[in-house]
């Protein structure tokens, strides 16, 4: 092995070991358990990483050297984002990612272990099942509604009336629709202290987001600018954090109306 590129990417075991040690120093038993392999099969990767000065063996524990940590910290997000894009290449290739700020796009790996929900034709207008079950367990909700779905609105109102803190960000056109056809719901929102409504002041259409302390549901439009009923659902803490950052990004260019 000569280069760092080879060291990191040419062996799954070396790479996974480096990522594992980002969490902190580990004994050989801990490495065996965490990686689900025998120590015997880790001896070569360990030796190779040591020879590349990326790994140190101190007392009974293995730990990344400082340059090992430096390289691994930079390789981890790359591996994560590649994992995400590999999982559903066609889905990601057809998304309009321009509306998501660059910094967050780069951290797409934080969506973690998500599932891509593609409803059958007959269920096209139902809310995803897992999502409905999860929202009732949430203690706060942030949502960007960039297309109108009557069930979302009534569900949010129901949740808000139970005292759950909820912030809804609407595009101008969704807001117009609500004012026109759902005056009653609008009035109800107005009367709930813990419900806040913002109007997005920008011409572009952001993806639809529902993020709570339990899950993230994300609907990114396709390149034609249409919602094609494919949603991302993730229960990973890093995904929820990512979703909140995205919500706050849009909230920055919004006006509070309720």
């Amino acid at each position: 092995m000569e280069t760092l590129t080879e060291t990191i990417w040419f062996s799954e075991k070396r790479k996974e070991l480096m990522f594992l040690l980002l969490e902190g120093a580990k004994t050989s038993e801990e490495i065996e358990n965490k990686m689900g392999v025998s120590w015997r099969s880790m001896m070569l990767p360990v030796k190779e990483l040591k020879e590349m000065d990326l790994l140190l063996h101190k007392d009974t524990k293995y730990t990344l050297s400082s340059i090992g940590r430096l390289v691994t910290e930079n390789a981890k997000p790359v591996s994560d984002i590649m994992g995400i894009l590999d999982k559903n290449t066609d889905y990601w290739a057809s998304r309009d990612l321009k509306t998501i700020p660059r910094g967050l796009c780069r951290k797409l790996g934080e969506l973690g272990n998500f599932s891509l929900i593609e409803p059958e034709l007959k269920d096209m207008f139902e809310l995803p099942e897992k999502y409905v079950a999860s929202i009732s367990r949430s203690t706060h909700i942030m949502s960007v509604l960039s297309f109108f779905h009557p069930s979302y609105l009534s569900m949010f109102i129901e949740m808000a009336s139970k005292g759950i803190e909820i912030s809804i960000l609407l595009t101008e056109s969704v807001w117009e629709r609500i004012k026109e056809d759902f005056q009653e719901q609008r009035d109800r929102l107005e009367n709930i202290d813990n419900a806040h409504v913002f109007i997005y002041q920008h011409v572009s259409t952001p993806p639809a987001i529902v993020v709570t302390d339990v899950f993230l549901l994300l609907s990114i439009f396709n390149k034609e600018g249409r919602y094609d009923h494919r949603d991302i659902l993730s229960f990973d803490a890093s995904a929820m954090q990512w979703g909140k950052e995205l919500f706050l990004h849009y909230a920055e260019s919004s006006m509070k109306v309720i």
């Binding site: 430096l70 390289v71 997000p77 984002i81 894009l85 290739a93 990612l97 796009c105 780069r106």
Partner: peptide, 28 residues
Amino acid sequence: EIGELIVDSIEPLLDTMRVIEENKEFWI
């Protein structure tokens, strides 16, 4: 777009590896 995303995300790693590999003894 995903190509751009990939390039964006590998660049910091490539820079890091180059900085180290140019003078590995120094950084170690």
